[in-house]
C-alpha cells in the first residue's frame, strides 16, 4: 500500500488532523474526499473525529472564567492586593 498517497485508508489517517483543521492543500483534500466517498469506514472516522473536536469546543466554552475567591487568593499571594478591583465579568 502506498502510504504517501491520500486515497488509501492509511494515507488518510496520517493527514486526518490537517484535513479537519483545513490545513491541507486542495489536491490532497480532493484525494481524501474521493476516498471517503468510496470507503464508509473512513467516512465515519473523519465525521466522528470532526464531531469529537466540535464537542470538545462546545463543552469547554463555558469554562473561561475564574472563580472570585480563587482570584482573591491569587492577588493576595502575589502581593497585588491593592490592585484587587472587582473582576470585569
Amino acid at each position: 500500500m502506498a502510504e504517501s498517497t491520500h486515497n488509501t485508508c492509511e494515507g488518510l489517517l496520517g493527514s486526518l488532523s490537517d484535513y479537519i483543521d483545513g490545513e491541507l492543500g486542495a489536491e490532497l483534500c480532493r484525494q481524501i474526499e474521493k476516498h471517503i466517498a468510496e470507503c464508509e469506514d473512513c467516512r465515519i472516522v473523519v465525521d466522528t473525529t470532526r464531531k469529537t473536536i466540535d464537542l470538545v469546543h462546545a463543552s469547554n466554552a463555558p469554562q473561561t472564567g475564574l472563580p472570585d475567591d480563587v482570584r482573591d487568593r491569587l492577588f493576595k499571594r502575589l502581593n497585588l492586593d491593592k490592585y484587587l478591583k472587582p473582576s470585569a465579568k
Partner: peptide, 13 residues
C-alpha cells in the same frame, strides 16, 4: 506508530 481506529459507529449524526 499511528493509532488505528477500531470503532466504526456512525454517531456523528
Amino acid at each position: 506508530e499511528n493509532i488505528h481506529p477500531t470503532q466504526f459507529v456512525d454517531w456523528g449524526a
